[in-house]
Computed example of a mutant assay.
Amino acid sequence: MEIHRSGDRFATDAERRRTRHSFSFGSHYDPDNLRFGLLVCHNDDLVLPGGGYPDHPHSNLEIVTWVLSGALRHTDSKGHTGVVEPGRVQVMSAGSGVVHSETVDATSGPTRFIQTWVLPDEPGGETTYSSAAAEPAGQWLPVVSGSHPDAATRISANRATLYAALLAAGERVEVPETPLAHLFVTTGSAVFEGSALGEGDAVRLRAEGGTITAAAPTELLLWTFAG
C-alpha cells in the first residue's frame, strides 16, 4: 500500500486554470511515476469561467472526466459535443486520433474535475464519445468499465473499471482485493486501514484491499485493474 498525499502532487498553473498531477505529466517528468497499471494520467483541474484547454490532439487513450463542480464543455474534430456536470461521467475514446477542446463557459462558475487517462486494449480504432448519468450513494457505483455489465458507460479497456461512492460521515465501504487499485479522495476525509486521508490524497494498492470509513461527507473514486 502506497499513500500519495495531495500536497506532493505536481502543479501546473496557467491562465484561468490550475492542474494538480498524480503522475509524471508534461514538464513534470518523473521516471519513477509514469503510470500505475493502465492508468497513465490522473489530473485534478480547477478552471475558472472563460478558461480551459483549447484544441489539442489525443490518440490511443480512454479519457474519463468526472466533474465535481461547475460545467465542462467538450467539442471535438469528429463532431461530438457535450456539457458534463456533477452527476454525469464523460468518456472519449481517442482511437487513432482526435482533436478536442475542454472549456468552461464565461457564464459558468469555477469548474473542478478529475480527468483520468487509461490505455486501451488495442491501439487505433474509432474515436467515440459518450456521457451518462452516474450518481453515487453509499456503496460503490460502477461508473465506467470495459467489462462490468452494470457500468454507466464503456471504455475499450477490458481489465479496467472506475467506481464512485458518496459516503455520509461514519459510513464505510470495502475496497476489493484486485491486482491493482487506485483509490482517490475527491472531497471530504476518511480513514483507510488506520491511515487518515484528506481531499486529494490517493492510495495505490497491489493485491490488497481494506475498509475505508468516512470521517465527514466524502466522495471517493476507485480504479481497479484486473490481471
Rank of each mutant, 00 (worst) to 15 (best):
S24H: 06
Q115D: 08
D105F: 06
R172W: 01
T116F: 01
A160G: 08
V40I: 12
E193H: 09
A215D: 15
G26S: 12
S108M: 12
V89G: 00
H182E: 07
N158V: 00
T187W: 02
A168Y: 03
R16K: 06
R154G: 11
A215G: 14
I155C: 14
E122D: 15
V83F: 06
R159M: 03
A214D: 11
F113N: 02
S22W: 01
A151K: 08
L61N: 07
A207D: 15
F113I: 03
A165G: 09
D121H: 02
G109E: 15
V203Y: 02
E177L: 00
V67C: 11
S189Q: 09
A207G: 11
P136V: 05
E102A: 14
V64L: 10
E135A: 15
P217F: 00
A214V: 05
S59N: 14
V98A: 13
F225M: 12
A94R: 03
A216T: 14
V83L: 01
A190H: 08
G79C: 02
D76S: 04
G109D: 13
S69K: 09
F184V: 11
N158C: 02
G79R: 05
E126V: 07
H28L: 05
T178K: 14
L38R: 13
R35W: 03
V99W: 11
G188Y: 05
A190W: 04
P110L: 06
Y29W: 09
R9P: 04
R9V: 02
K78R: 07
F10M: 09
V191G: 09
A157V: 05
E193I: 00
T12L: 11
R35M: 13
T19D: 15
S27K: 13
N33Y: 03
V104H: 07
G125V: 02
S156Y: 01
W223F: 06
I155K: 07
R16S: 13
P49E: 08
P142T: 04
